[in-house]
Amino acid sequence: MPKFTLNGEAREVNVPGANPLLWVLRESLGLTGTKFGCGIGQCGACTVLVDGDPVLSCLVLGRACAGKRVDTIEGMADGNGLHPLQQAFADLSAAQCGYCTPAFLLTAVVLLKENDRPSRPEIVAALSGVLCRCTGYLKIYEAVERAAAVMRGEKVTPLEEILDGI
């Protein structure tokens, strides 16, 4: 198995045969933040970034990632500092069970990289490759918008003041 850059670190893994990246990450490397929802491209739970693009790790062979950059949820926070998207997801409870959350976060990172002020329809389209059964997506959209504002340097309503008085 190949050398590749995982969350910024050079890694070499020895896995026999042709194993999809999802299993390489979860079983060989113990990075279980990437989730399994179907194994056949039908849910998006296994999303990771390969060379900066969000892809389905259940359908990419680990070996096909040789020489590439792989980023997973484990590499998203900067040390102990949450990424603004992570903070916004936490603030707005956009993660309920949390099973789909890594996939949405990684997809959203790429969206905000390409577009620092995405409209609601743009968010809907960009995130349409991941299913969530808990949230109904709306809190996820709001979290992406909140994070985008934070990343643009704007002030956002402090959590305590949102919904105050209900």
Partner: peptide, 9 residues
């Protein structure tokens, strides 16, 4: 076709 993620692959 399918989803943005799948279209990336």
């Amino acid at each position: 076709i399918s989803t943005p993620l799948l279209r990336n692959m």
